[in-house]
Design a binder for these strands. Structure first.
Lengths: 124, 124
DNA sequence: TATAGTGTAATAGTAAAATAGAACACTAGG
DNA sequence: CCTAGTGTTCTATTTTACTATTACACTATA
């Protein structure tokens, strides 16, 4: 996996797992790969994986069972809340950043539309 | 100034100065505060300021004159290009992140609109 | 009960970012 | 020429993220 060196790896691992939860690669109650396997897959150290998982356990996203493995929470409401929270965090950040570049509300929306339209002509 | 501990301070200082350039607090050709003064203003070490400025000098955003000070480039085209680049970088990031959370193109635009509308009812 | 697979924890070492402090180089003005 | 204000550079130290390695704790099962 390739990482952005501007943000901590353990933080990017969290986002990676969120991604798999939101896209259905990891459904509610599903067992995650073993921490040592994740470390190999992501080409990082076990402790770095553990740090990411530790925070997710703290926030109730995944549940740990010693000797068995780590599992996505079965609380689907919790997962839905998490997704909403992650989306809003992204929106807040981009809004703040573009606002700081002196773009108006309308310009922010327009620039995103334009970006996605142009992107659609080149990708997918 | 308050910093996000998830990203290097020198990097946030660059964004801070970009912000002032884009909002007209620092016009083309304007003299920046002395590095030691900036360090005080931002409650940060001189070397950290210098690292941020060094990168901006490299990319042609500001020009350094030993003994005189640091100045915003007079090349307004360069500044306009920079703004466009910074905007696109933000759009790319938020698009990638929201796409990773399984939002469609339309959902991404809709969620941003909704966020800005709701925000407008509470702020400014 | 032995063993393999799992999570957890602790120690030690490396690298990058940031800090603190000092020194050096240049400019302008008295 | 001297001095104050500026950018520039250097060394040393601290902190944080990450890595490497090992050990421990628990579970399932042959």
């Amino acid at each position: 996996m390739q990482f952005d060196d501007k943000v901590p790896i353990y933080y990017q691992i969290k986002n990676h797992i969120y991604h798999e939860m939101m896209t259905g690669q990891l459904v509610a109650g599903a067992k995650l790969p073993a921490v040592r396997q994740l470390a190999v897959d992501l080409t990082v150290n076990v402790n770095t994986v553990q740090r990411a998982l530790g925070e997710m356990i703290q926030e109730g996203t995944i549940e740990s069972q010693r000797g068995k493995g780590n599992f996505v929470t079965t609380d689907t409401t919790r997962i839905a809340q998490l997704k909403e929270q992650l989306v809003v965090e992204q929106l807040e950040r981009v809004y703040q950043q573009l606002h700081a570049l002196n773009l108006s509300d309308d310009e922010i929306i327009a620039s995103l539309k334009q970006y996605i339209e142009q992107r659609g002509q080149q990708h997918d």
